[in-house]
Design a protein around this nucleic acid. Sequence first.
DNA 1: TAATTATATCGCAATATTACGATTGATTTT
DNA 2: AAAATCAATCGTAATATTGCGATATAATTA
Lengths: 109, 109
Amino acid sequence: MGATKSLEFSAKENRLAKYAKALAHPARVAILQLLAKKQACVCGDIVDELPLSQSTVSQHLKELKDAGLIKGDIEGAKVCYCIDEKEWKAAQSSLNQLFDSFKSGSNCC
Amino acid sequence: MGATKSLEFSAKENRLAKYAKALAHPARVAILQLLAKKQACVCGDIVDELPLSQSTVSQHLKELKDAGLIKGDIEGAKVCYCIDEKEWKAAQSSLNQLFDSFKSGSNCC
DNA sequence: TAATTATATCGCAATATTACGATTGATTTT
DNA sequence: AAAATCAATCGTAATATTGCGATATAATTA
């Protein structure tokens, strides 16, 4: 055992979990902050900003890309990473939908 | 190796990652949905709603509690779980802060 | 074209997560 | 008091994540 029982849950729940998982590491949060502020789009610049090796950063970038939150544009030898606006908004809305489903003061205990 | 280098990142980044991690599993998303809708506060009711064993659900509840998102009230032999309103809002705000730091159309590529 | 630069991927080790049955320690119920 | 119920924890197995060095591949520069 140990495999996640994803199939037992709804598509919506899995989608939300997927987005959350992408944000579930401080390095990936840091990368997204950089990209959001547009201070570093090129992979190498991101590597320079983080206390991690090139290969590790590359892996985190891949995870963010797999989650759909960012996309990479090849520019010659370099790669320019950017936030995927559409998915970014989908993720935010997905998360807020959960948060907003709780009404203030409606707690049973 | 393999240990997360949390200490190399800011408190803010780690806090956001901590909240995201709590939401990074469909079972925990499902639990929070239930609690938000207040249809099931008692641990046993949550177990009945999920396709997971009692011990596994208990573990997920513990993780949500450790992240601060929920709290458990002992009511005799039962335990009533509820969303922690304060942390819930803190988590939402923390996440939205990141999402809102990206301005539409400001992409470099 | 050779050397350099930029990024991705492979292989591995360490650690963390997911899941469950069994057990434990409480509270209720009988 | 004995039996049943509720939920946390322990132990363990399977799987996933994190991290890095080494290597591979592609583009750029000398």
